[in-house]
Nucleic acid binder design. Structure first.
Lengths: 334, 334
DNA sequence: GTGAAAGCGCTAACAC
DNA sequence: GTGTTAGCGCTTTCAC
């Protein structure tokens, strides 16, 4: 049988209420009583029933962490997801919330997620992927549930956005390349449907213009995949005026660029320098190790958890748009 | 204000009990009443309160997914963790359980996790990493909470283990290499404190013996890290009788081997063939792409979820040791 | 087939 | 300071 507050009260020879007061650290209990109660709790191994407490306080102290899964067997998500999750875990714990891990198909309705909120099972949600339908987001905006979106802007009273300063990232990459003497710098982009793909490209443009290199701007569209990076580099490197450096909108694209360069017998960075974006796990494992722009993934997650917890406490977001800085990581590819 | 069962009952002009019967699909309700109730539920957007239900039924329908985090910012875990998590998510959903994501430090006590069980917040746990203290596991074994361990054997009535057939993996790798004509095949091992490191090595030994190559057995101990793979390969390749092929106990080690080979100007697989283990995400991204043994990570997670759900329903495990087969993935390194 | 009453384990309000 | 009472929203038991 499960130990309840009653058992503790009986054993300590006090009322149920006194036990409750001790458990919740209310300073009304006199020390001697407190001791007796604590001892009884210890001896019985009592832990208060979570459901009873939630029912009474109307607070589940739980936030949903929504990840996107395509078909069975694969978690489609941002390459920096694991670091973001670490941040979300730490942030939630710090704020005193549990995490309910929830997965949604990209095409799925948000209704089921919103239901969890109605059931008072969760106090809000963090959507840990930009790769989600417009419809899904719209449904959430209309639902009563507060939520935070990673790497994607959003409107609505109960919605907030936490993202990296992708524009800055682009500028950092270009400034570094220019400082190293490169001028003809091409850009290989991500899928243009993503907000962050556009911003990273905007950063590239701005970086080039800022260095007086508008004339040299050269963009090939990709779709985040290794293959599209390969194709783009293949095209660029075999053109009449091949670029001296290639800035890719993601590490995955950059690895495609690396492979194309190898297949064309161009040495990196001697013949062509390559800079990636994300600093995902494989970035340091390929050869040459990728010079890249690090997404502040852990910090993004941490902040997201803070924000949603803050909403729950205050009834509103203290900050609806949180933008964190990227960082240049210098390795061997540029 | 939150909609409760009372509101629905009032709106539908029935008793609370009837609403409950409808919500729980109990066939005692006559169709016309059922319709009225369902309509009221629809109109009000009613969702039953999860805490109230759990309190009454003594079932949280939740399992903890325990991952290991070292210091802030990093999720130390098996390289195949993301696939395993996918499986756990799908398996839990199929069985009708929610997932509470919980992180523990490797050195931490299991007490807090066991408390969640006492609080009736979770029905059991899946420990998604072998990289956990003996003490932690022992504490769990002594606790009343049922749990499943990934990639690690365990004793105890309320404990089960789901792991890959690492021995088979070793044999698959060696058989493939032998079939390709290699004879002098060395092994670079993982940290010997891990059960799976020993089993993978055992598979290597067995594979060699099975092919009459006992004489050729040559083992260098590593610690799973890229660096240790590099050092091991460096030593092996510069020795008097360098191996024709190297089988590494993990992809990370194998990538270290690849880098050492490159630095020594040995071509892979022409001068030395390399086979890894895990098939983690970076395996297909490095050059040459790694031939490797795939951990059935997704299936491991799926099975773990099934097992813990089964325990909760039946009060015991149907299967305390679940061993899944590995698979040879042929790419370009061997 | 439907409704009334009791109670899951806890906390909030108010006596004492 | 401590105990008593009521009730959170639901399901279970048992009349009707």
């Amino acid at each position: 049988m499960k130990i309840t507050i009653k058992d503790v009260a009986f054993r300590a020879g006090v009322s149920i209420q006194t036990v409750s007061n001790v458990v919740n650290n209310r300073p009304v209990v006199v020390e001697s009583t407190r001791r007796r109660v604590l001892q009884a709790i210890e001896e019985l191994g009592y832990q208060p029933n979570a459901s009873a407490r939630s029912l009474r306080t109307h607070n589940a102290a739980t936030i949903a962490l929504v990840v996107i899964a395509s078909e069975r067997g694969y978690l489609v998500s941002a390459p920096y997801l694991d670091h973001a999750i670490s941040g979300i875990i730490d942030g939630s714990r710090d704020a005193g919330y549990f995490i309910l891990l929830y997965s949604a198909q990209p095409s799925q309705s948000a209704g089921k997620l919103a239901d969890l909120y109605k059931q008072q099972r969760i106090n809000g949600a963090i959507i840990a992927s930009a790769q989600i339908n417009e419809t899904f987001v719209d449904e959430l905006v209309c639902s009563p549930m507060p939520f935070v979106l990673l790497e994607r802007p959003v409107n609505g009273d109960r919605a907030a956005s936490v993202r990296a300063n992708s524009r800055l990232g682009g500028i950092q990459a270009i400034n570094y390349l220019v400082q190293r003497g490169y001028r003809r710098i091409a850009f290989v982009g991500g899928a243009p449907a993503w907000a962050s793909a556009l911003e990273r490209m905007e950063g590239y443009r701005q970086g080039m213009s800022g260095n007086g290199l508008q004339e040299q701007i050269r963009i090939v569209e990709g779709d985040w995949s290794l293959e599209s990076g390969y194709r783009a580099a293949d095209e660029l490197l075999q053109s009449d005026h091949p670029p001296e450096a290639i800035f890719a909108a993601s590490d995955m694209l950059a690895i495609g660029v690396l492979q194309a360069a190898r297949d064309l017998n161009r040495s990196v960075p001697a013949d062509v320098a390559v800079v990636g974006y994300d600093d995902f796990n494989a970035a340091s494992l390929v050869s040459p190790a990728l010079t890249t722009i690090r997404m502040p993934a852990y910090e993004l997650g941490l902040k997201a958890a803070e924000l949603i917890a803050g909403y729950h406490r205050a009834g509103q977001f203290t900050n609806k748009e949180c933008i964190l800085d990227t960082q240049l990581i210098i390795r061997n590819s540029a």
